[in-house]
Nucleic acid binder design. Structure first.
Lengths: 189, 189
DNA sequence: CCGCAAAGCTATGGCTAATAGCCATAGCCG
DNA sequence: CGGCTATGGCTATTAGCCATAGCTTTGCGG
């Protein structure tokens, strides 16, 4: 049979395409194989761990992309300006790739590679917090606060949980305002 | 064959037990049927919509429980006191029933019953916000802010996304502080 | 006491992931 | 250049899942 030149990266690419088009639920080995022009079992030659492994790869990739978007957004900015850019980039990524973002949370968290990617994401946040004079334990609490608000809004907004008619952009502005005020008044223990 | 006296409510009960024990992924008709002492197809006599219907029922029930917990927590409290109780109840519910909370839909739901339950939950939040003089459109933005922070923290905390050693209880206190300060200084348009 | 709707069942079909084992290709190396 | 090994395909199979169709039994209400 003619080799189709599949690689692990190629399989991941098809997986991401599938997720983007039809949602995380649609990520099946059968669908990926069909898209790659290959029979399902052949995928195991490239992704030995099967579906769980593929999901893991997706989570790592998305986390990396998100961390990269955040890092780029805060370049050359500080304090409130950086926080606004950070939230904008976070929520913007989730809005541009809602299914991809939704594929994030149900990943196994004990994976080393995923933790490394997540650490980079947190690192960007912590770097921004230094502009508020925060470090050490309080920086961790503040980073969690930032992450919780960003994730909460992104998750609810992309999930369609905000039913009422009010403008989501305004809500995002309010969220940024609450966050920046909170960070400026943070108890610098 | 002896009738086992199954009812829709009974099926839902088994489904919730299963989710509590093994996670939302473990919710299968086969497992529910085994637990109920019944063959899989028999479930369709009580839950005609099959697995999607069962998942829907779970989501409605969990939303109702959460709304109820919030309503009870804010009874007799107002302003910062109410917000603290609200977040505590929300996060507490998620921590006591992490799988159940994780079973809440992350996909857009146009189900009427679910929307009604969600509306009750939002109603409790909006009621608290009246203590800050907020209503109308700004109350919606503020409610979204509260919901985003609560969901974001609950989701990340129960999902194990906060890896570092710092105390989650302290983070929650900081979150409450940021939120209450933000609500007190809300732009009452 | 009997009819009949409700509630159980088995059988079947069509998905899925995953494993086992076979065959064709590619590219290296003597 | 010939052959060998590693690799990347394949088919077949197993096991588990949801779902539908259609039969049988139960037990309630008239």
């Amino acid at each position: 049979m003619p080799r189709v030149g599949l690689t692990p990266a190629g399989v991941l690419g098809h997986a991401l395409d599938l997720i983007d088009e039809t949602g995380p639920e649609a990520l099946t080995l059968a669908a990926v194989a069909a898209r790659a022009g290959v029979a399902t079992p052949s995928l195991y030659k490239h992704v030995s761990g099967g579906l769980p492994e593929l999901r893991r790869l997706v989570a790592v990739r998305v986390t990396e992309e998100l961390a990269e978007a955040l890092a780029e957004a805060v370049l050359g900015r500080s304090r409130d300006d950086a926080v606004e850019a950070l939230l904008g980039a976070y929520i913007g990524y989730a809005e541009r790739h809602p299914y991809r973002y939704a594929a994030l949370p149900q990943a196994p968290q004990e994976d080393a590679e995923l933790r490394r990617a997540a650490a980079r994401l947190v690192g960007v946040i912590v770097a921004v917090l230094r502009g508020y004079g925060l470090d050490g334990t309080e920086a961790i609490h503040a980073a969690r606060t930032v992450r919780a608000t960003a994730h909460g809004f992104a998750s609810l907004a992309t999930g369609g949980a905000f039913q009422l008619a009010a403008d989501l952009v305004v809500t995002q502005q309010r969220l940024v305002r609450v966050l920046t005020e909170g960070l400026r008044a943070w108890p610098t223990a």
